[in-house]
Simulated scan of single mutants.
Amino acid sequence: MSTISRAAAVALIEAVRHEAAAAGFGVATAVTDAGGHLVAFERADGTPFLAAEVAVDKAWTAASFRLATHTLNAIVADPQVAPLAHHPRLMAVGGGVPLFDGDVCVGGLGVSGGTAQQDVDAARAALKSQGFSVPD
């Protein structure tokens, strides 16, 4: 199974930290492999402690479903799949994105600490700066 390297995970975390600092918020950032296992994590000083767990769960959710978590938010609004929203680790809030190498998912990135839109923006900017595809 292809997976993200630790070096690439750390580079993504540094890129997220830079974007969040420029936007004026502290951030917790998590990177998982394709199986949802944590590869790298960082929580900036002063970032709420809950953001740490949320970032890990956003990365896990994005890797699991191979979808951005803001997209999954709209999906779980459908009554036929709404029960998924009760899964303890599912985090259908913007800021989680799958990581692809070509067509292969190699992991997930989770960003938490700002508003959902700030988290999405920081994740997208970090992906772009590191050469990953950027989901809609």
Rank of each mutant, 00 (worst) to 15 (best):
E53A: 15
T61S: 14
L38S: 00
T69S: 12
A40G: 11
H86R: 13
G113W: 03
V106I: 15
V27T: 14
A52K: 06
T29A: 14
A92V: 11
V93H: 06
G107H: 11
L38K: 00
V76K: 08
G94Y: 05
A62W: 04
N73M: 07
G108M: 05
V111W: 03
P79K: 05
L84M: 15
V27Q: 04
A20I: 07
G96M: 03
P48W: 08
T29F: 01
L38F: 02
A85W: 03
L99D: 10
G95Y: 03
P79C: 02
G110T: 12
D101L: 12
P48L: 15
V111A: 06
P88T: 06
A59F: 09
L84K: 03
F41K: 10
V81D: 08
L72A: 09
G94F: 08
F49C: 00
S112K: 07
L67A: 11
L38W: 01
P83R: 13
V56L: 13
P79R: 10
A52D: 13
G102I: 08
P88D: 12
N73L: 10
M91L: 10
P83I: 12
A51T: 14
A20D: 07
Q80G: 03
T71P: 00
R89M: 13
A20N: 04
D101S: 15
S112Q: 04
G94S: 09
E42D: 15
L50F: 12
W60R: 15
F100K: 05
V56G: 09
L38I: 08
T47D: 02
P88V: 12
F41T: 09
G110K: 11
A40I: 03
G107P: 09
A30R: 07
A59T: 07
P88K: 10
A92S: 13
A85P: 02
D45R: 06
S112C: 05
L72Q: 02
D78H: 14
A63M: 05
A55F: 07
G96E: 08
F100N: 01
I75G: 00
G108H: 10
D57Q: 14
A40N: 06
L50E: 12
D78G: 01
F65Y: 14
A74F: 06
L72N: 04
T71L: 11
L67T: 09
A92W: 02
I75Y: 03
T32A: 03
R89H: 14
T47P: 00
K58H: 08
D33W: 06
G108K: 10
